[in-house]
């Protein structure tokens, strides 16, 4: 991506290193959408995502001196956001009990409906997953982590990681099958 190698970004990062509040605000706005989309898929609500987003950006601004400017800022940022989300998840699993939902077999989905679903609605489906399914699905499918890496990060076995991914997919299929045209119209009206 040309944006993180641009002179504008370098100038912004320099300003952030000097703790210039205006530069920090501009950097925040510039990467708000990108970072928020990461946070949303690891949380169950926008409020929760906002909390992780600001925790992540706080780390960015206070630890910016550790950023290697020869590398991609966007990758560094996404890593911080994911790690912050995982910290949040680890705290959460101490409180929550996973509800191992029963998944219906052979769920049929109307593809014409899916094609019309908004990105926000698909994100809401991910958010409706249990924390364990949501995190494994996001790490594996969207952020490209291997099952070994996921197992390490979440302190679970590789088998559990694969199982959670499989069940997350089934759960998403089930939710997609329940969406009909009427629901779509209601949501997007």
């Amino acid at each position: 991506m040309p944006e993180y190698t641009s002179a504008v970004l370098i100038e912004l990062l320099d300003g952030c290193l000097q703790k210039n509040r205006r530069s920090q605000e501009l950097l925040y706005k510039q990467f708000y959408g990108y970072a928020m989309s990461i946070c949303l898929r690891y949380t169950r609500s926008r409020e929760e995502a906002k909390e992780i987003l600001n925790d992540g950006f706080f780390k960015v601004f206070t630890k910016l001196d550790t950023f290697d400017s020869s590398r991609s800022f966007k990758t560094w940022l996404s890593r911080i956001m994911i790690n912050t989300a995982l910290d949040h998840y680890r705290q959460e699993i101490r409180r929550d009990v996973f509800d191992d939902v029963e998944v219906a077999d052979n769920v049929a989905i109307d593809e014409t409906v899916i094609s019309k679903l908004a990105h926000e609605e698909l994100m809401e489906l991910i958010q409706k997953l249990t924390p364990a399914y949501r995190v494994v699905f996001s790490l594996s499918v969207i952020d490209g982590y291997t099952h070994e890496e996921i197992a390490d990060q979440l302190n679970i076995s590789v088998g559990a990681s694969k199982s959670n991914l499989s069940r997350a997919r089934e759960k998403l299929r089930e939710m997609l099958s329940k969406i009909n045209i009427g629901d779509y119209d209601r949501v997007t009206r």
């Binding site: 959408g33 928020m36 052979n106 593809e111 994100m123 997919r169 997609l176």
Partner: peptide, 29 residues
């Protein structure tokens, strides 16, 4: 009505996640 294969399902959500662009909320800043 067909069953959505894993790779199609993944592609759907991956694409959706990449193209999602939440609106900036000044309150967050």
């Amino acid at each position: 009505m067909t069953e959505l294969p894993d790779d199609e399902l993944d592609k759907l959500f991956r694409k959706s996640s990449e193209e999602l662009d939440p609106q900036f909320d000044p309150e967050d800043w």
